Simulated assay, not measured.
Amino acid sequence: MRTIAVVRGGGRGCRVLAAVVAAVIGCAPALSACSASPPRPVPPADLHGARYVVAGGPTDQLVLLCHLAVAVVEAAGAEAAEQCGKLGAADVRSPARSSVDLGWAYVGQADRDLDGEADVPAPFARVAAQDAARGVTWLAPTAFADTDALAVGGPVAAGGMRTVSDLAASPGATICAPPGAVDDPQGLGGVLAVYGLDPARVRPLDPGAVLTETARGRCTAGLVPNTSGRIPALGLVVLVDDRSGFGRGADGTPGPGRGGAAPVLRTPVYAAHPQVAAVLGALTARLTDEVIRELDRRITVEGRDARDVAREWTREAGLTP
């Protein structure tokens, strides 16, 4: 039974009070609904009972990917021992000297023979098949590319330059690039050949200066790491590689393409809980060029901790509560 105190004496003040009481009583359910917490994200699969030793490093990006993997497998119910900063993929391939179960490797830079050097790039399916024979399982790679890219300043992009073909068709356009870049058939050298660009257009610059000089307009375009956080920080725009010039083979034929980074696991560990592929696949599918640049910006430009950035973004993306 609900008891309501009655204010005696009448008058306008009493009528106002009565209206307020009625409004509060009538809206109680609505107020409760408004204050309810948002629904918790539902993981793509249940990993309760699974335990992973997760590594990735030593670069900032691999450390970030390690923390991202830890966040999503824990949200799915797994236990994760974090060793971010260690070499992930190499440790997965060396069970005799390492306890790492889950790491990251770049599709276009895989060191499958563990000689300390990147192997000849190969399509993802071939890389995965070769490693499967060694007891290593590759999962779906990220949506971002692990190639270089050509970027232009905001004013240049606003003027209509959006693709590498636009750059090639622009008389007098210059490209700033690190020394020797024109000789890389999988990078700028391949781009020059595919688009018919004259190597004389390329201006050699220290790698650290390419981004800033491009942002200042002293180069029409700059050869930059595709995932660099300085791209958004400097207001640069990446040109669309509309004829797939990056990632070609040494003979100029289309190579492994955009590549990306992929989770790699010891096959027995994967086989115990194969649903981990769905959990990590939901993560890698969201890691686009734009997303990884923004995360790199938070770490390298703002100086934030990779673990904090990973936890923050997975909540923003609806992957973790």
Rank of each mutant, 00 (worst) to 15 (best):
R2W: 08
C14D: 07
L17P: 15
A18S: 11
V20M: 11
A28S: 08
S37V: 00
P43G: 01
H48L: 00
Y52P: 11
Y52R: 08
G56L: 01
G57L: 07
D60G: 09
D60E: 11
L68S: 02
V72G: 02
A75F: 01
Q83M: 08
C84F: 08
L87V: 09
G88F: 01
A89G: 14
A90S: 13
A90H: 08
R93Y: 10
P95I: 10
L102R: 11
V107S: 06
A110W: 15
R112A: 11
D115W: 08
D119M: 10
A122H: 05
F124Q: 02
A125M: 05
R126G: 09
R126P: 12
A128G: 04
A128D: 01
V136A: 14
T137K: 09
T137P: 01
T142V: 04
D146M: 06
T147Q: 14
A149P: 14
G153C: 03
A157P: 15
T163E: 05
D166S: 06
L167P: 03
A168Y: 05
S170L: 14
G172H: 04
P179I: 06
G189I: 13
G190R: 12
Y195F: 13
P199E: 03
P199L: 05
V202K: 15
V210E: 05
V210A: 09
E213F: 02
E213W: 12
T220C: 08
L223A: 14
I231G: 04
I231R: 06
L236K: 00
F246L: 13
T253Q: 14
G259F: 01
T267Y: 00
P268M: 06
V269Q: 06
A272M: 04
P274A: 06
A285V: 00
D296C: 00
I299M: 09
V301L: 03
G303C: 03
A306L: 09
E316H: 06
P321G: 13
